[in-house]
């Protein structure tokens, strides 16, 4: 077992983990943050996306020990402390950007990373950036609309 410490959604955590524990397993099973999902085992679907030190990362492709000392933000950290949805989350609701909700946390984390990097993306740029997130319900149409609307709302 290895001891690791990190900040998750602003809170410090310290735990003992097996070296082979994936970051997503640590988040879900050790910390109970089950908003981050596992949709594949080959790093393609993006349902497990989180932010590690401000960078978008697939938490199924990182060991928990690699995140030692890092600042992690998950979907549970995206709304205001009083529960008010963030701008991107609100845009997803307003534009029906989710159906079953399983890919949604990863989509929101990807959208946040995109808008940080490119605050005014075109539809084509949004589609290209979301290439690493699979959704089987929405056909992406309303996800793209939601991200575009969030960009406009953030001005």
């Amino acid at each position: 077992m290895v001891e690791i410490s990190m900040t998750v959604n602003g809170k410090p955590v310290t735990a003992q983990v097996e070296p082979r524990t994936l970051l997503v397993t640590f988040l879900r099973e050790h910390l109970g943050l089950t908003g981050t999902h596992v949709g594949c085992d080959t790093s393609q679907c993006g349902a497990c996306n989180v932010h590690v030190n401000g960078m978008l990362a697939k938490s199924c492709t990182m060991l928990a020990v690699e995140a030692d000392g890092a600042e992690i933000v998950t979907i549970e950290g995206m709304a205001a402390p009083d529960g008010t949805l963030g701008v991107i989350q609100q845009a997803f609701q307003d534009h029906h950007g989710l159906q079953c909700g399983f890919c949604t946390p990863g989509m929101v984390m990807s959208a946040a990373a995109l808008l940080r990097e490119n605050p005014d993306p075109s539809e084509e740029e949004i589609r290209a950036f979301l290439e690493g997130n699979l959704c089987r319900c929405t056909g992406y149409h309303n996800i793209v609309k939601a991200v575009r609307a969030a960009a406009e709302a953030m001005g």
């Binding site: 943050l33 998950t74 995206m78």
Partner: peptide, 12 residues
């Protein structure tokens, strides 16, 4: 439904 799915509070 969106409120729980958008905040990671769904129960799959």
């Amino acid at each position: 439904e969106d409120l729980r799915f958008l905040t990671g509070s769904g129960r799959y």
